[in-house]
């Protein structure tokens, strides 16, 4: 009996490992394919049968992107918009979250529900109204158009995430500051913010990713090549007569690098922040 159990357990473990490997392959292969293709020539990408490893290992695609000021501009735009949105989101969301977490005011519950409800709308349904607004305010094809639009999507989630995080911090701390001679403002910036780093990092990473990856609004609300962001830049490489697949893949790799670096640096805080904000 015991022997049969051991055999069964081994089979289950084997099946589990096979399943996990299949999952890993499914998740990792597209990333590998992106990496491998970025080091191939455009001709090799179309080779049949496809080559798993580049026959000719070349940095040609990377050189083409990194020496082209137009393409570098896409990166600059993406960094600028994502950074500005992240900073603004964290500051505004922190103030709102502190209000929700620490003060009772009329309409608090209704406002909270309203914030959550904005998350239920598919962004595409707001595309035309936003386009109309942006054009009528003369913001079309500007950074402001992207920053303001992205804030609409990043703020609700950031407010919810940070409110959850601040709720886990004891109110005694705010009261200790009050007794020590400080205002709510002092409590927020001198005590609450420094100990909320995990929550702030989690919110920042989420916001940065959202902005960095955004395609739909960036495509609709900008027009000139000078204002385009990385996702649009990749799409622009699909020409009418030629597809620069190796450059598209190289640009995708370069576009993913900041995210990877941010994840690696912030991973510890990100996980802690997510847990602290959600568990309690």
């Amino acid at each position: 009996m015991a022997r049969r159990n051991t055999r069964r357990e081994k089979l289950i473990t084997l099946a589990l490992h096979v399943g996990l490997l299949a999952g890993l392959f499914f998740a990792a292969f597209p990333i590998y394919w992106m990496l491998a293709s970025s080091f191939k020539t455009n001709g090799e990408i179309f080779a049949l049968p496809p080559t798993i490893l580049p026959h000719v290992f070349t940095f040609e695609a990377y050189a083409a992107i990194l020496t082209d000021p137009v393409k570098l501009r896409f990166f600059f735009n993406s960094y600028l918009v994502a950074a500005v949105v992240t900073i603004l989101t964290v500051i505004i969301a922190l103030l709102a979250a502190y209000g929700f977490s620490r003060f009772n005011f009329r309409g608090k519950a209704a406002l909270s529900t309203l914030i959550i409800s904005t998350q239920t709308l598919p962004p595409i349904t707001l595309l035309i109204p936003f386009f109309g607004l942006v054009v009528s305010y003369g913001l079309f094809d500007t950074y402001a158009a992207l920053v303001l639009t992205y804030l609409v999507f990043t703020l609700p989630y950031a407010v919810l995430l940070l409110t959850g995080y601040l709720n886990t911090l004891p109110r005694d701390l705010d009261e200790a500051v009050a007794v020590d001679g400080g205002s709510s403002w002092t409590a927020l910036w001198r005590v609450i913010v420094p100990i909320s780093v995990p929550g702030i990092v989690a919110t920042s990473v989420y916001t940065f990713l959202l902005c960095w990856n955004e395609f739909l609004f960036a495509l609709t609300l900008t027009k000139s090549t000078d204002m385009r962001t990385v996702p649009i830049g990749i799409q622009l490489l699909m020409g009418q007569h030629a597809f620069e697949w190796n450059q598209m893949m190289a640009m995708s790799v370069l576009g993913s690098l900041p995210l990877l670096v941010i994840y690696l640096i912030a991973q510890r805080y990100f996980l802690a922040g997510m847990a602290a904000g959600s568990v309690k």
Partner: peptide, 10 residues
């Protein structure tokens, strides 16, 4: 001056 149950140390 107040001493809190949780101490509320920063």
């Amino acid at each position: 001056a107040m001493v809190f149950q949780s101490y509320a140390l920063y």
